[in-house]
């Protein structure tokens, strides 16, 4: 196995262009996968020195480097994402090391970041040798552990537009140590958007009117959540059952309703 730690994005994309390489960000997901033989790459590209960390303002939004850690996010003012970052499971060691770009690229259905990015209308900046593109978060998350990123691409940054909508975030876990079972990221503006994480293979977007959200929420979730995520922690029917509950709590939180 080859290991490279390029000093910039060009170096990263050059290393990825060669073929079957795995990108390591914070390492909290992919390194244990390698240890247990579930990922057997011929090359590892480490982003640690590629200059991809940090949060910056850009016009009317945020640019969040892919290597920005949960700890940095938690200290920021990025709506929803800062809240989600503070509640990441695994302790400060994971929050110090795990990155928003790594979590997005891993696309574990049972994780906080994908649904939050979709709720925020974030855009994912991907780079490959000789080119770059942006993909809306809603398209980026293609399924369980699947994204729109091609093997020769690297996620470099995530842009998040400012929003005047009020945020609400609720994460439901079985106990402290479990993956999230269902998360709900809500933004309440003129209309309400709540995005469910953990409930299905990819984030589920629910759009609601302010006046009727309580009446409509359950049926909308039922309509959209046709294939709930099922794993050893919780069966799909349980996720489907509590998804409207968690969504309602997130919306109520955004609206500061009890």
């Amino acid at each position: 196995m080859r290991y490279t730690r390029p000093a910039d994005v060009d170096g990263v994309t050059a290393a990825l262009a060669d073929g079957d390489a795995v990108v390591v960000g914070g390492g909290t997901m992919v390194v244990p996968e390698m240890t247990h033989g579930r990922v057997r790459p011929s090359a590892v590209v480490d982003l640690a020195k590629a200059g991809l960390a940090g949060i910056a303002r850009d016009g009317d939004g945020w640019v969040i480097g892919a290597m920005t850690t949960y700890t940095e996010l938690a200290r920021s003012n990025v709506p929803l994402l800062a809240t989600a970052a503070r509640g990441i499971t695994g302790g400060p060691q994971i929050r110090n090391r795990g990155t928003v770009g790594g979590s997005a690229s891993y696309a574990n259905p049972s994780s906080d970041v994908p649904a939050v990015l979709v709720a925020l209308g974030a855009r994912m900046r991907l780079a490959r040798r000789g080119g770059a593109r942006e993909v809306p978060a809603a398209e980026f998350f293609a399924g369980a552990f699947r994204t729109a990123r091609e093997p020769d691409e690297v996620l470099t940054a995530i842009t998040v537009p400012d929003t005047a909508a009020a945020p609400g975030y609720v994460k439901f876990k079985l106990v402290e140590g479990s993956w999230p079972i269902v998360t709900a990221a809500a933004l309440a503006g003129p209309t309400i958007r709540v995005v469910l994480g953990g409930a299905a293979a990819a984030p589920v977007v629910v759009e609601l009117e302010r006046a009727s959200w309580r009446a409509r929420l359950r049926s909308e979730v039922d309509r959209l959540l046709t294939e709930p995520w099922d794993d050893v922690l919780a069966p799909g029917h349980y996720r489907a059952r509590i998804a409207p509950v968690i969504a309602a709590r997130a919306v109520a939180g955004a609206l500061e309703e009890a």
Binding site: V175, E176, G177, S178, L233
Partner: peptide, 10 residues
């Protein structure tokens, strides 16, 4: 992550 021992917060 799938065999859930109590953690401090539990």
């Amino acid at each position: 992550k799938s065999y859930l021992l109590p953690r401090a917060g539990d």
